[in-house]
Every structure is written in structure tokens, then in C-alpha cells.
Design a protein around this nucleic acid. Structure first.
Length: 616
RNA sequence: GGUCCCGUAGCUCAAUGGAUAGAGCACCUGCCUUCUAAGCAGGUGGUUGCAGGUUCGACCCCUGCCGGGAUCACCA
């Protein structure tokens, strides 16, 4: 904020003037004053005492006097234990407020000419979205909004893992046992239907494995391969993947199906397209409910062969080397990593080959000089390697790549496990939060006069506000415990608490409209109440909060800010009267202040992907 | 075992190296005749995993331990 720079420069000038000390202005620490002291901004004078060779309170008093005289926005100061607290003039705060109100883009930055891609969600097409995808989507969406707000052009991209063994399992199970069921005939949402066949496949496979374990062949394998003293059940648990690849009839069928798919067999491709189309329709519905969207879709089936030219390139540049068997590697041991295959001996791509290829392709085609990959932290190593390799290849965009790594979402009972059926389904969860919101609303009664459509819309906003805030308030890199009961709380540190402060403001604004209140005399109101000053200071901090959240790819900063702003507003609401204020200037000022808070809350919540209802 | 991440109130989470480590939930106590009480005010609750170090000042930076997690495939 410009005021901070002004103060920094003035302090530097004071140091020069009194002590002949040269200090770069940006090294001067200016903090916001904590609530229990008088003042708006605080200069920490400890770093200067050695240079000035005077006691902290003397230095503070001298600099304070200098600032008060030379900087007209500094109205007063006090020094406590080496902290120089500065009070800005009421004129400054008044003009700040009116500037905020005339600037609908307050807190946002102008176009900086960069184009950034934010890649998020990356679902597999063999089952529906779950709680983990929700955290991913909310982070990706909010992050993309933050990047836009800080002046970037953003491309939202989704990579869809639409090929491979997983979807073939669903396809095979549907073919064998589905009897032609469709989403229409079964009344089941497409992604859930396909997911059911995936589960069915896994169950059938489990049965087959159990039966196989009783055969002589299995006994022979156990005798030959088990470690000494290894009990049978432990051995067969470990052996499962080997069995599936070598002995399983279903396994063989799936692999044959995958081969047919890769060969472009028309029937297989048609089946694949049919099931995937059901899944996409299901995903679209879930994304719509979550309020997230994409500008660009990448299908793994289009990109999985990509990246071979970059391997050639890397060989030429001696970044990669070829082993005798023909496989291509990169040696990162000098950077504390391992050697890594980038191309198999048979010439086919591996996971990282694709990512190398798509990174270059995106830069070439879309000019994205920054890419944010929103991917869970289990892939930290993969991205460290990927970025390092691209750097060594001298790719021009290599420094603009960022892995927004987020921690796993766990339940109070522990990790979600597919096998134990503890995975929280995204659609179920959304339905559940809406149900609870409906229950609470009927007790509350505030929505009773709305039309049924408006009621539904409001309930959706409240419910999703609760769910989204609950997830987004946590620092992304931390693992989070998701307690379903707490996620639907509407009181306390929650989305609805913030929405409610916005709703209160909406109510005021409607009344302003109706009663045609004159807001002009606000400027003559100068004797701010504590609650008012607190709000002004909070509003003042908004642009920096947006900047920090964007720079750190961390929406939780903004979530916490929004909560604190809402909290200050609730206190203000309680402490002072707005419409019943005793003088017209106070009334006008409080209405302007409320309007400003409403504007910033709406802006901030929008960056988090949360809507504020008209009433609740 | 190597590398990386996390350990803060009973629980879920905050705290650009700055002042007495803060919120919410839960548990108590108050506040609707006044702009929506989905709100406000107060109380209880802490050796910031442990031990050193750097600094005028450390939850934050450094070192070593302890605990939890992730990852180290010609899988994705």
C-alpha cells in the first residue's frame, strides 16, 4: 500500500536527518498496530537503536516528531517500549473510504501481461468425484481467481485421465454384467454408474483370487516364492498384483481390452467413448454444483504419447543419456535426486514424458509462461523432478512453474479407503450440507417469505458457503481433518457467519434505496468509534491480503481475512446504530462504511468461490 | 535407510522475526420493546513435541533428537 511506502521513506529520511544513517526505505519495518494500542501503523525502532546510539524510546520519539511534522497524513504518535505507533489523520481515512467506494476493483491489480494456466481436478473416469477432488477444485478455482485479481490472464485447465487399465475395468465389467444398463435406464448418474462397474470388477476379481488361492497351482507358487516363515495369507496379500498380471482370467481380459483400445479397435473405442460420455455428464453436474469451471480440457488419451520429441531434444543437449537397453534417463544425483527414466526401453512414454511434452505444448500453443499444477502432495517428488528437468532443458517457462501441493483430506476416523467404503462422495456430501442447511433454515424462519426457487437458491449458497469455507480456510499444504458434522456448522468461524454480515449490509442498502438516504454528509463525521476504526483498518489491509494470498498460492489467507472482517462488522453492528444514529453525518458515514465492507466482503468471498445471498 | 512436509488450548484451525501466542467448536454466565440473536459480551482452557543455538527480540531462522505423514517403479 502506498501509505506504507510513504512512511518507510519518511523514516529513512528521519534516520538520515538525525543520525546521518543511510537505510534503504524498504528495510524499514512498518506493521499494522495491534488492537490493544492506539495507532494505525507501527514502526519498529529496535533496528535503529544501535545505529543511533540512543535508547529505543528516544529514537522513537525523535522519529515520531519528524513524521508528524513532515508527513501530513500522520496526525499523532506515541512510543511504547521501542514501538512507534502512528495515527493517521481522519482526512486520510475519509478519502480512503470514498476512493474505495468509487473503485469497484479495489484490491485488484491491473493487467500485467502474463498468461497463467491453472490445472486442477485431474479426475480418473472410472469413478465419481470425492472429497479429495473437492479440496483440489476449491483450491484450483480460488487460486485462479486470485491470479486474475493480481493482473494475470488465467486459463483454467482440467486434465482428464480417461484411458488406461482403470477405465478398462469398468468397461469390461459393464460389458460382462451390465446387461446394457445406461444412466437413463437405471436412473443412476453416469459417473456413479460407471463407478459401480469398477467396484463390481474389483469384487469379481477378489472372488476369483480367493478361488485361485485354493488351487494346486497357487499352492505351488506359495511353496516356491514365499519368504521363509511367511504365512499363506500374508504371502497372498503381497502377491495380489503379480497374480493379477500373470494368472487372473479377468486380468488377462482387461489387458487384452487395453491392447485393443491402444490398437484403435472400433468396438472397444465405441464402448470407451460411451462410458466416458456418461462420466463427463456426471462430472459436469458436480462441477456446476461446486461452482467451478474450465476453459480447456486435456484428455490423457490425446497426450499420453506426447513428449518423445523433447526426449530427442534432451539427448542432443546431453541432459539425458541412453542406456545399453535403449531406455533414456536423466541423472539428477548432483541435485540430490535420483536417476529417472524418461523413455522406456521399448520406446514408449512414461508418466513424466507426457508431462514434459504437455508443458512445452502449452507454452507453444497458449503462451502460458506460468503454470500452476494443483496436485496432492503425494506427487511432490514427481514435480520436483519435472521442474528440474525442464530447467535443465532450458525451457523458457521453466521458472514459472509451480506445484500447488496440498495435503490429504482425512476423516476423524482416519484416511478414506476405497476398500473400506469410507470414501466421501462429492455429490452425497453436497446433498447432505444442503439438507442440513434446509433443516436449520426452517427452524430459523428467515427464508419463509421467499419463493420456493429463491429459498432453494439461498439454501444452496449457504450450504456451499459452509462447505467451501470449511475446506479453504486451512493452509493448503497441511493435511486436514474433515469432520462432516463441523463442515455443516452455520455458526462461529464459518462461511455462513461471513455471509450473514454481508446479508446484514444488503438489508441496510435496500433500506437506503427505499428511503433515499442522503450519504453526502459522511465527510463531516470525524470522531470515529473504535469499531469504525477497526473496520477502516481492516478494509485498508484487503489489497495486501489478496496480493499475499496470490503470491503464496494460498487462499486460506484470504479466508481468514474475510472472517476477521466479518467479525469486526458484527461487532460494529452490535456497538453502534446505523439508521438510528443521532446525527446525519454519523448515519451517512456508517452507511458508507457498511457499503464498503459489503463491497470488500463480496469481492473477497468471490475470490474464494463463495456467494453471499440477499438474505438468510 | 535417504529426501521432503507437518507437530500450537480437549477438538478444528490462526499468528510478514516484534508488544501479554489468538479464533471457532465444546463447557459455563449474561444480552432480543431498538437496523435480521445464523449475532454480541464475558469465563474456563497453553512448558507452541523435546534439547540446544543465532538475535535487542523466536511458534517462526539454524543444529540434533522424538512423534506423524508422503515419497524414493521402464505405475499413473
Amino acid at each position: 500500500m502506498a501509505i506504507i511506502e510513504t512512511l518507510q521513506k519518511a523514516v529513512a529520511a528521519a534516520l538520515q536527518h538525525y543520525y546521518g544513517v543511510e537505510m534503504p526505505a524498504e528495510q524499514v519495518q512498518v506493521n499494522t498496530t495491534s488492537a490493544e494500542f492506539t495507532g494505525d501503523y507501527t514502526v519498529v525502532v529496535f533496528p535503529f537503536v544501535k545505529l543511533a546510539k540512543k535508547a529505543p524510546d528516544v529514537v522513537g520519539a525523535e522519529i515520531g516528531a519528524f513524521l508528524k511534522e513532515k508527513v501530513d497524513t500522520v496526525q499523532d504518535f506515541n512510543v511504547i517500549k521501542g514501538f512507534l505507533n502512528l495515527e493517521l489523520s481522519t482526512e486520510y481515512w475519509q478519502s480512503f473510504l470514498s476512493e474505495l467506494l468509487t473503485n469497484p476493483d479495489f484490491g485488484k491489480q491491473p493487467d500485467n501481461g502474463h498468461r497463467v494456466m491453472v490445472e486442477y481436478s485431474s479426475p480418473n473416469t472410472n469413478k465419481p468425484l470425492h472429497l479429495g477432488h473437492i479440496r483440489n477444485c476449491l483450491l484450483g478455482w480460488s487460486c485462479s481467481k486470485l491470479l486474475e485479481a493480481t493482473g494475470n490472464q488465467v486459463v483454467r485447465a482440467q486434465v482428464i485421465n480417461d484411458r488406461g487399465v482403470a477405465i478398462c475395468k469398468s468397461m469390461l465389467a459393464w460389458q460382462k454384467f451390465g446387461e446394457g444398463a445406461t444412466p437413463e435406464s437405471s436412473g443412476i448418474k453416469g459417473d456413479h454408474l460407471v463407478g459401480e462397474y469398477y467396484v463390481l470388477f474389483e469384487n469379481k476379481s477378489k472372488e476369483e483370487y480367493a478361488a485361485w488361492q485354493k488351487t494346486d497351482a497357487a499352492r505351488a507358487v506359495y511353496q516356491a516364492k514365499a519368504k521363509p516363515d511367511q504365512p499363506e495369507d500374508a504371502f497372498f496379500k503381497d502377491f495380489k498384483n503379480n497374480w493379477f498380471n500373470q494368472y487372473s482370467a479377468l486380468g488377462t481380459e482387461v489387458r487384452e481390452m487395453l491392447l485393443r483400445w491402444e490398437a484403435g479397435d472400433p468396438d472397444t473405442v465405441a464402448l470407451w467413448k460411451k462410458l466416458n460420455s456418461w462420466v463427463y455428464a456426471g462430472f459436469d453436474e458436480t462441477y456446476a454444483k461446486l461452482g467451478v469451471a474450465f476453459d480447456k480440457l486435456y484428455y490423457e488419451s490425446d497426450t499420453y504419447l506426447l513428449g518423445k520429441d523433447i526426449v530427442e531434444d534432451g539427448l542432443k543437449k546431453k541432459v539425458f543419456f541412453r542406456k545399453d537397453d535403449g531406455s533414456v534417463w536423466v541423472d539428477l544425483t548432483d541435485a540430490g535426486m535420483d536417476q529417472k527414466v524418461v523413455l522406456r526401453a521399448d520406446g514408449t512414454s512414461v508418466y513424466i514424458t507426457q508431462d514434459l511434452g504437455t508443458a512445452r505444448k502449452r507454452y507453444d500453443e497458449l503462451g502460458c509462461d506460468r503454470v500452476v499444477y494443483v496436485v496432492a502432495d503425494e506427487q511432490n517428488y514427481h514435480f520436483t523432478v519435472l521442474f528440474e528437468v525442464l530447467k535443465r532443458l532450458g525451457e523458457p517457462y521453466a521458472d514459472g512453474l509451480h506445484h500447488l501441493s496440498y495435503g490429504l483430506v482425512e476423516l476423524p476416523t482416519g484416511r478414506m479407503k476405497t476398500r473400506e467404503g469410507t470414501v466421501v462422495d462429492a455429490d452425497d456430501l453436497i446433498e447432505e450440507v444442503i439438507r442440513v442447511a434446509r433443516e436449520q433454515a426452517s427452524e430459523h424462519g428467515a427464508l419463509d417469505t421467499l419463493s420456493p426457487e429463491e429459498q432453494e437458491d439461498t439454501l444452496r449458497k449457504i450450504a456451499l458457503g459452509a462447505l467451501k469455507f470449511f475446506i479453504i480456510k486451512v493452509n493448503p499444504k497441511k493435511r486436514m481433518i474433515f469432520n462432516p458434522e463441523e463442515s455443516v456448522d452455520l455458526q462461529g468461524q464459518t462461511g455462513p457467519y461471513i455471509q450473514y454480515s454481508g446479508v446484514r449490509i444488503n438489508g441496510l442498502m435496500q433500506r437506503v434505496e427505499k428511503e433515499k438516504v442522503d450519504l453526502a454528509p459522511a465527510g463531516s463525521y470525524t470522531n470515529f468509534e473504535d469499531a469504525e476504526k477497526e473496520l477502516l483498518k481492516a478494509l485498508h489491509a484487503y489489497p495486501d491480503t489478496v496480493k499475499t494470498a496470490a503470491a503464496e498460492y494460498d487462499p486460506s489467507h484470504l479466508a481468514n481475512y474475510s472472517y476477521n472482517l466479518a467479525k469486526s462488522y458484527h461487532r460494529f453492528w452490535h456497538d453502534v446504530s446505523v439508521f438510528n444514529a443521532d446525527d446525519p453525518a454519523a448515519k451517512a458515514f456508517r452507511l458508507q462504511l457498511s457499503k464498503a465492507v459489503g463491497q470488500v466482503l463480496a469481492s473477497g468471498m468471490d475470490l474464494l468461490g463463495i456467494e453471499i445471498p440477499q438474505r438468510m
